[in-house]
Amino acid sequence: MMERKDKIVRTLDAMEHPENFTKEELDALLSDEECVRICRDLLDSREALARRYATAPDVEAEWQSFKHRQGLCQASGQPKKRSRMLYTGIALSVAASVILFLLLRLSVPEEYTVFRADLEAQVVSMETKNGVHTLHIPRGMSQLLVLPDSSRVWLNAESSLQYPESFEGMKRREVYLKGEGYFEVTKDAAHPFMVKTDALETQVLGTSFNVKAYSGNDTQVTLLEGSVKVSDRHHKELLLRPGEHTDGQLRKTSVENCTDYRAWIDGQFYFDDVELVEIMRELGRWYNVDIVFTHKEIMQERLHFQAERSDSLQDILELLNCMQRVKARMEKGKVVVGV
């Protein structure tokens, strides 16, 4: 009894001060099969121990169930002192079960998947319906498209553009974008050019600009030349001039070098003070691979990072690791990012 109590006390100390124990000592604490079995018996009977709003376990009921399974039922008339010792033992076992459960949780890091690979074949495809084309660019590719009015659009990985076979007879030249596209629009003052996304509409006469709209919550418009008028679903409008940038909430900012926003069409990854989670999603989109974080707090780490899109994924991860801010590795076919 005392030996078991001493081990529980030692486990408590390990939980409170793990830095005082070696990995071997921690492993030894978890190697006691009987203790682990007790832990599992009690946790199975009260799954609520792992829930946030769980009620306290009925120790008496759990003890009776435990005695029945283990064949330790007391004979009637047993001394009260022995009964108290048994109740003390089960109380300590409850404490041990919780501690061991937490230690087991500590030994398996949390995983936060922020991007998933697509197992389907990645190919460029075109759909046409009622005179409207939809071009789909898969992950790991980008492509230049020339529109019927000679405007040029570079589409990034996992993007699609919907556009008519001809703009003739239309007051406005409208296209619909999902993903990211860089536009060089042919001037035609009589027929404004409109890029629609789920969150914003961008109207131009003749200009160069980049639109990123992989999701409604992450929509961005960056103007390189000319001028554009950006509006949201509530008809709020914002005028952009060269070197200006706006997000999905129409918050305008100035950028030092707006040509960085078209680096991707020149075959580069370029991130200037960008959150790590967005950098890793972009890498996942290009290399079509699962991205998993082991620590939630490092997702918001901001980095300046540049690399060639022609580099292998392993080369990219080595470059990231050289910055000594995070650790990224390939594990079982996915990228795992930790500290």
Rank of each mutant, 00 (worst) to 15 (best):
I137W: 05
A121N: 08
G89T: 04
D44W: 02
G338H: 03
N321Y: 01
L177A: 04
I99K: 06
F271M: 06
A213Y: 04
R46M: 06
S65G: 14
G181A: 14
V221K: 04
V36T: 04
Q122N: 11
D58V: 05
G284Q: 00
L240T: 08
R69M: 06
F293P: 01
A96Y: 03
E282S: 15
A96F: 02
D315M: 12
D118L: 11
G226C: 04
M85G: 06
H136N: 11
Y182H: 14
R10I: 02
R46P: 01
V132Q: 13
W264R: 06
L145V: 15
G338T: 08
D272P: 04
R173C: 00
K67G: 01
Q74L: 14
L102T: 11
V228W: 01
K332M: 07
S160W: 08
M85F: 13
V204A: 15
G169V: 10
V289E: 01
T246A: 09
L119R: 15
G77K: 08
L319M: 15
K5W: 14
M2N: 10
E282R: 14
S227F: 09
A199Y: 00
E180N: 02
D58W: 03
D247Q: 02
Q70R: 15
K327Y: 13
S227H: 10
L161Y: 05
K67T: 06
L104V: 06
D232L: 09
M141Y: 07
K327P: 00
A54M: 09
E301R: 12
T197W: 00
G77H: 07
Y112L: 04
L313A: 07
Q64S: 13
Q122S: 08
L238W: 07
V289S: 01
D118T: 12
V335Q: 01
H304Y: 12
L313S: 05
Q143G: 11
S83M: 12
R173I: 00
G267I: 08
V124C: 09
L30A: 13
H295L: 09
P109A: 10
A263R: 09
E297L: 06
Y214I: 07
I291T: 02
H245W: 14
K81S: 11
E297T: 10
Q162N: 07
S107N: 12
G338F: 02
